[in-house]
């Protein structure tokens, strides 16, 4: 019996110590993790917008985050956007704008949430839920950053996730106001090295660059070898003027598939296609509603 008690006591003591160590590490690293993730995203975003390597970011540039939710209540579903309100240059807090499935305006609720907390999904969900009341359930779907310069929109940054060959592929996609692609960055993937993992290489992802919306809408993957000059231009091995020329020339071409990784190539291009099309459709509806209801937004 005494034996039994000592075992229990020692095991409990070890568990407590172990729990203490793990808990402390979690608390210590969690903040750093979030900060690092945010910093990495920020770096990618600036690189996509063309401010890589220490280039100064103009002060007139603004970034406005737009969070999309699907709201379900007794009557059915609707789409909600959490967006910053107020004219350019003034802070009006955040508002949750609900739009019906057919694109009609439903209502607007002010959400008291700070600029810091809005980035954290848990805090954000809590604030929106509190503002909406208990009878509605919300589900976060995606977020978009609208980039402005002097109050004029210059780009949209979309983050999205779709299934690749092995697991999900997460990307950030930069679009210009006409929904043409500015750039694409692969954030997370677990594709096979040497095959599907090549999606993060310049010669694959830069193919999407400058593709117009009309082309992206119906983009396909071509299983043929990539011409040498195009490869060189995509990798940045030729001077800028020549590269621009070549890129223009291949603007309306389909995406060249990666050798031995057609499934990964198709996954990325149809992912980009779907994201762009859905975003364009939704943003038009949202803009329409914002204009009709005269909701002032900084973008």
């Amino acid at each position: 019996m005494k034996n039994f008690l000592t075992i229990i006591f020692r095991l409990t003591a070890s568990c407590l110590v172990a729990g203490l160590i793990m808990g402390t590490t979690f608390v210590l690293t969690n903040k750093a993790k979030k900060a690092n993730e945010h910093a990495r995203e920020q770096k990618v975003v600036f690189a996509l917008l063309g401010y890589s390597g220490g280039q100064e970011i103009p002060e007139s540039m603004g970034m406005h985050e737009l969070y999309r939710y699907v709201v379900t209540d007794g009557e059915g579903q609707s789409i909600g956007y959490l967006l910053p309100v107020g004219e350019h240059g003034q802070d009006g807090g955040f508002s949750f704008v609900r739009i019906g499935l057919d694109g009609s305006f439903l209502n607007q609720t002010s959400v008291p949430v700070s600029e810091e907390n809005v980035r954290d999904q848990g805090e954000r969900d809590k604030a929106i839920q509190a503002a909406l009341g208990g009878d509605k359930t919300i589900r976060f779907t995606d977020q978009t950053i609208v980039v402005t310069d002097h109050g004029q929109r210059t780009a949209y940054l979309l983050s999205g996730k779709f299934p690749g060959f092995k697991t999900n592929i997460a990307i950030i996609l930069a679009l210009d106001p006409e929904y043409s692609v500015i750039g694409l960055e692969v954030m997370e993937h677990e594709e096979d090295p040497g095959l599907g993992a090549e999606i993060e290489q310049d010669y694959f992802k830069n193919q999407f660059k400058y593709k117009p919306f009309e082309k992206i809408k119906s983009i396909e993957v071509a299983k043929k070898p990539m011409p040498d000059e195009y490869f060189a231009a995509l990798e940045g091995n030729v001077d800028e003027a020549a590269a621009d020329d070549i890129m223009q020339q291949y603007r309306d071409q389909d995406i060249y598939a990666l050798t031995g990784a057609t499934i990964s190539s198709v996954a990325v291009s149809s992912g980009v296609k779907g994201m762009t099309r859905k975003f364009a459709y939704r943003l038009d509806l949202l803009d329409n509603v914002l204009e009709q209801q005269q909701i002032a937004v900084p973008f």
Binding site: V70, I99, L101, R282
Partner: peptide, 9 residues
């Protein structure tokens, strides 16, 4: 017809 995850499209 819509996909369950995207009721507005």
């Amino acid at each position: 017809v819509y996909e369950e995850t995207d009721p507005d499209i």
